[in-house]
Amino acid sequence: MRHPKPWDSLLRFIQTWKFAAVSFSVCIYSVVWYWWIVSVITFIPSAYVQYSPQIQGLLFLGLILGTLFSEIFCSGRLSDWLMVKMAKRNGGQRMPEMRLWLVYPAVTVSAIGLIIWGISIDQQYHWIVGQIAFFLLAAGIQMGNTIIAAYIVDCYPLQSMAVITFYAVILNLSAFVNPFFIAPWVTASGYTWTFAAQGIITFVVSLPAFAVLQRFGPTLRAKSGQPGWVNPEYDSII
């Protein structure tokens, strides 16, 4: 096995921007959809200031249960099942874009969760309403997470390490940036309008963006060409 140079990871991260199917899908998910979860986590102590820190910790259960539910029932297994069913209809030919059909319900569920949570805090609804909102938000985001990860690996299976590294870096950068603007936003607009706006942005931007990707993904991959490297385990074979 020929080991990559120490600087290859950085170079390949930069080069991955060229492959639009990867960079477009990852950026839309990270910046338009995923990073709102950081907004919610940041404001849990402020939104539930009437509760002790111990109780506030328990209020993360909605997010945990939503993530677990999505991971078990609505993520990889469901995505693979959909891929197999649609491939049969397509003469046995699999296309990465077939996975993206699950994005639409996932985006919708996340947007609903955001809107409900913002309203529940301003209107001082019972805490269970916020937990239901957390469940919906986390379930949608986790479903989207596994769909995007599977999609970019399907696009470039021989470069799976590089595309997942690219995904992880962009995702964490988005999480780092979010707290810098969410506090002034909530202060200026309040919980209802801040989180309703986030839900609307998620729905209005993500759905058309992924529809475009689903329609033109094969064209983007054809124009981008193939990366000039493969995973180390494939290097001796290629």
Rank of each mutant, 00 (worst) to 15 (best):
H3K: 15
P4T: 04
W7R: 14
D8H: 13
S9V: 15
L10W: 14
F13Y: 12
W17N: 06
W17R: 02
K18W: 09
K18N: 09
V22T: 09
S23R: 06
F24Y: 15
S25N: 06
V26L: 07
V26T: 11
I28K: 01
V32E: 06
W33C: 10
I37G: 10
V38H: 05
S39C: 10
T42N: 14
F43R: 03
I44F: 03
P45R: 07
A47D: 03
A47T: 06
Y48L: 14
P53Q: 13
P53N: 12
I55E: 12
Q56S: 07
F60G: 11
L65E: 02
L65R: 02
G66C: 09
S70D: 10
I72W: 13
F73Y: 13
R77M: 12
S79K: 04
S79T: 13
W81M: 13
G92I: 09
R94T: 12
E97L: 01
W101S: 05
Y104V: 11
Y104A: 12
A106E: 08
V107F: 08
S110A: 14
W117Y: 06
I119N: 02
I121A: 04
D122Q: 12
Q123T: 08
H126W: 08
Q131H: 07
I132T: 08
A133T: 04
A133E: 02
F134I: 03
F135C: 06
L137S: 09
A138Y: 01
G140Y: 07
I141P: 00
Q142A: 08
Q142D: 12
M143I: 06
N145D: 11
T146H: 07
A149R: 08
V153P: 02
D154G: 11
Y156D: 08
Y156K: 07
I164S: 10
T165Q: 11
T165W: 01
F166H: 03
Y167E: 02
A168W: 11
V169K: 05
I170V: 15
L171N: 09
A175L: 14
N178S: 13
N178D: 07
P179D: 12
A183G: 05
V186M: 09
V186S: 08
T187L: 13
T187A: 15
A188K: 14
Y191W: 12
T192S: 14
T192Q: 06
F195P: 00
A196S: 13
A197H: 02
A197L: 05
Q198C: 14
T202P: 00
V204Q: 03
A211D: 03
L213E: 00
F216S: 00
T219Y: 08
K223Q: 15
Q226P: 00
G228L: 10
W229K: 11
N231M: 13
S236A: 15
I237F: 11
